[in-house]
Simulated scan of single mutants.
Amino acid sequence: MHTADRDASGTGDGGCGSDKPAPNEHLEQLTALFERGPAAILTGAGMSTDSGIPDYRGTGSPPRTPMSIEQFTNDAHYRRRFWAGARIGALRLANLRANAGHEAVARLEQAGHLTGVITQNVDGLHTAAGAVNVAELHGSGSTMRCITEGHRFTRAETLAWFDAANPGFVERNADAPTNPDGDADVTAIDSVRVPVCPACGATLRPDVVYFGEHVPKPVFAHAEQIIADAEMLIIAGSSLAVNTGVRLVHRAETRGIPIAVINRGPTAVDRRSSLHTRIEGGTSETLSALAAALER
């Protein structure tokens, strides 16, 4: 799915893999910050790599050109490309599960160590893991809506309509490679018939923020409140390559609260004076270790 989160931002590297755990002194620094009070956490694409979703800027990530909202809205070729990729990608996403990092975040929130979760991802895995106060900056990939009246349908419903309109498509293209966000690179799309809103006949689109769109004001306000209630900000699995995340960092800096980063690879805040703790590593093992340390 071509969203501002992963297509435009390429937010971060943070999977577990086989890397060694975070250095104890850095984890101790992060743990000690919780003496101030609860944290807000901002997560990016690296949060979900251990669930099997590739990111855009990690080592070995494929080159990628984001689909803009103008392309999707105005060009039937791009709409066919989206639906073809979404349908085949759904085959791989069927067994998608929250990973240890998502579960650790939910544990931290349930224990009162987090004021909430702000995520740039559209995969819904924080909620699936049990997190409650979640601000999804770039929307949810599980919902489709029509561009005229705003009628909403589940992704599963609309993909079933796609299958009815394109018999045999899945069988012919099941081996197409998976992209970040879980869609697929399907090349044979000229004959694809895209589903439309059954209520009004309008174009259907994923209920996400595309490249070229802005985060809805109520969603950004929700994220701001999560930071306003916190005594620090943790950035996990994001390189902060898009402005939305940087704006939230500015909110934390204005309040004078410390910032901690857990990421594999450089981020936009690595040289900021507000950065208190920097852990070079994956989100799954680091957040699991953090949750365990605070449970002692």
Rank of each mutant, 00 (worst) to 15 (best):
R272D: 09
R145P: 01
R64T: 11
V170M: 08
K217E: 14
R81A: 11
T154W: 01
G212I: 03
T158Q: 14
L137Q: 10
P62N: 00
I235P: 02
H222C: 00
S288Y: 00
E171T: 15
V215I: 15
I262F: 11
I226M: 03
F82D: 08
V122T: 12
L114A: 11
A86P: 10
L240E: 05
G44W: 13
A176C: 05
I88K: 04
G112F: 09
D19C: 03
A228N: 09
T3N: 13
V215R: 13
P63T: 05
V194D: 08
T244D: 15
P54C: 01
E109D: 02
G150E: 00
R278P: 06
G237E: 10
R172L: 14
G52W: 02
I41K: 01
L27A: 02
H276D: 12
S9Y: 13
A293M: 04
A86C: 06
R193W: 11
L159C: 03
A291C: 10
L275Y: 12
H26C: 08
F34V: 09
C146M: 06
N74S: 03
E103N: 05
T187D: 04
R193M: 15
D19W: 12
E253V: 10
D13K: 10
A106R: 04
T127I: 07
F162K: 01
G201H: 00
Q29H: 08
V196D: 05
I147R: 12
F72V: 14
P180A: 05
R145W: 09
E295Y: 02
V269E: 02
L91Y: 01
D175I: 07
R296H: 15
D185K: 02
S140F: 10
R193E: 15
L248S: 04
I234F: 11
I88R: 02
V246T: 00
F220S: 12
L275R: 07
D50H: 01
L240Q: 05
L287T: 13
A128K: 07
G101I: 14
L108C: 05
E213Q: 14
C146R: 09
G265M: 12
L275Q: 10
H102F: 05
L275C: 08
A111N: 13
A202H: 06
P54G: 01
V134W: 01
G17C: 09
H126S: 06
I262H: 07
A293Y: 06
R87G: 08
A129S: 09
H102E: 05
L275P: 08
D7K: 00
I53P: 00
A100V: 03
T119G: 10
P266K: 08
A76F: 12
T158M: 15
D13S: 15
R155H: 13
S18P: 04
G14I: 06
D19Q: 10
E231P: 03
P38T: 04
D123A: 04
A174K: 15
A164Q: 15
D19I: 03
G58E: 00
D5T: 07
P206R: 02
P266F: 08
A236V: 09
I259M: 03
N166C: 06
D7H: 07
P266E: 07
E35K: 15
